[in-house]
């Protein structure tokens, strides 16, 4: 059984409901702010690390629901730069959890490849411990040819930091004569971001803010705030969010055509990012 995609977690009735909802518009990119692990731990009288482990298990269940629904891209807010302010014990336990789960992913790479999951990790990776960076690099490089489900994980991430890093790449592009300042427009900046635009963003635990997540991308995203704590998020909560999306989603925004120079610059940027992962791994 795969650690990352929880199999056999949907009943016949749930699969039936998924099939029915698939008759309508399904979001092509869903983002999650998985909030409420610590409150769940307090409620259940267990330690915080157990709460986070339960949170990860919920993510693996959610990924299976997304695959069943035919959602090709999922983004999860795993760790914010601001979360470094938490107690050392909690930060260490979160890093240990990431280490363990990504090592399991590498162990189970055949099953991940079978599911077609491509892992994309974004954030200020330099802030993470060196060994974790190497494990993440392994996961990213080992899954880069998959294309059935794009799983973006925001690690050591904030939306403002993402905008600042994208600005750096674009300014560097001008310095290196890859693009001219006149090639810079809103669409180029959007393409230089770590993540694409989600159609639906779900935040659990009753909080009604973005907490510095995907600030650039959410302009036309349906924001759905659920009252339940993340480890208690069920498929029915998820399907309600999908129905809400189907009732209220704004029409798709037309993408502006890019110039050949912009296309080449973005290709180079993609290559540069892959090379950075290879350098971390020491390839």
């Amino acid at each position: 059984m795969s650690t990352w995609i929880k199999e056999n977690c949907t009943s016949f009735l749930q699969l039936f409901c998924i099939k029915v909802l698939k008759a309508g518009r399904i979001p092509q990119h869903v983002a999650f702010i998985m909030d409420g692990n610590r409150r769940f731990a307090r409620k259940q009288n267990v330690n915080t690390a157990t709460g986070h482990t339960k949170g990860f298990e919920k993510l693996s269940e959610t990924l299976k629901w997304c695959l069943d629904l035919g959602i090709p891209e999922v983004t999860a807010y795993a760790f914010s730069i601001e979360n470094f302010k938490r107690s050392k014990k909690e930060v260490d336990s979160l890093m240990a959890l990431a280490r363990e789960k990504f090592e399991r992913l590498i162990d189970e790479i055949d099953s991940i490849n079978e599911w077609g999951v491509r892992i994309h990790i974004a954030g200020r990776i330099s802030l993470l411990p060196e060994d974790l960076r190497a494990t993440l690099a392994k996961a990213v490089l080992a899954t880069r040819k998959n294309n059935k489900l794009h799983l973006n994980i925001a690690y050591a991430y904030t939306g403002r930091d993402e905008i600042s890093r994208a600005a750096s790449h674009i300014v560097d592009g001008v310095k290196n004569n890859e693009i001219s300042p006149d090639d810079i427009d809103e669409d180029l900046v959007s393409q230089a971001m770590d993540f694409g635009e989600p159609e639906l963003l779900i935040r659990t635990s009753g909080e009604v803010r973005l907490s510095d997540f995907m600030l650039w991308q959410v302009s036309y995203t349906v924001l759905y705030f659920s009252e339940v704590l993340w480890p208690e998020f069920t498929i029915w909560n998820f399907l309600m969010a999908i129905i809400h999306f189907q009732r209220h989603a704004p029409p798709l925004q037309e993408e502006k055509e890019k110039t050949p120079i912009q296309i080449q610059f973005l290709k180079n940027l993609e290559l540069k990012k892959t090379r950075e992962w290879e350098q971390i791994l020491g390839c």
């Binding site: 939306g159 403002r160 803010r209 973005l210 907490s211 959410v218 302009s219 759905y224 209220h248």
Partner: peptide, 18 residues
């Protein structure tokens, strides 16, 4: 019923409540 930013000041809305 729809909560959407419609492009409202992306840099500034990081902590605001909707």
């Amino acid at each position: 019923e729809l909560c959407c930013t419609f492009g409202l000041l992306p840099w500034q809305i990081r902590l605001c409540e909707f």
